[in-house]
């Protein structure tokens, strides 16, 4: 399956991946309304990690062995048997955050306003996820393997 891979050597830590992830996962899909009006505020499923010159954007790895799915108490976290994409069913999530404990990458986000979790869903319906499409420096790629 295709995944989003960061290329730290090109990441400029502008955090625009987070911005466009929030827009894509907002009600209005409007960048200004999503950030200024919507309540609860939309969350990003990707996060730029940085330390000095090193930076990269991290999102869910959609693991073949998804510990978050195994750990989920309610069956909210699931892996699509066809596509392999790991998603969370917001209606079933109870916000116990066991998946957050289980995730080896720290890629699952706490949605404190709704008391549930939020994560990358690889932007269903888009040809490539919003973070990849809007990265200004080619620091995120959407492909089968980390290295082409």
């Amino acid at each position: 399956m295709k995944r989003v891979f960061p290329r730290e050597e090109h990441c400029v830590a502008c955090h625009l991946c987070e911005v466009f992830c929030r827009v894509q996962h907002s009600q209005s899909k409007d960048i200004i309304k999503a950030h200024k009006r919507e309540s609860p505020a939309p969350l990003a499923g990707i996060k730029v990690e940085e330390k000095g010159a090193l930076s990269f954007a991290l999102n869910c790895r959609h693991c073949e062995e998804p510990y978050c799915v195994y750990a989920c108490l309610t069956g909210a976290m699931r892996q699509d048997p066809q596509t392999g994409v790991v998603t969370v069913d917001a209606t079933r999530c109870v916000g116990c955050w066991t998946c957050i404990l289980a995730c080896p990458y720290g890629a699952i986000v706490r949605d404190e306003a709704n008391h549930r979790v939020h994560k990358c869903d690889l932007c269903p319906g888009l040809s490539e996820p919003a973070c990849v499409a809007n990265c200004p420096n080619g620091a995120l790629v959407y492909r089968e393997k980390a290295h082409a």
Binding site: A13, C14, H15, L16, V19, I32, H35, K36
Partner: peptide, 14 residues
């Protein structure tokens, strides 16, 4: 300010 979404891209890039 009606357009600034406080994403801080300007802060990180300058």
């Amino acid at each position: 300010e009606t357009r600034c979404i406080m994403c801080l891209a300007c802060v990180s890039q300058c």
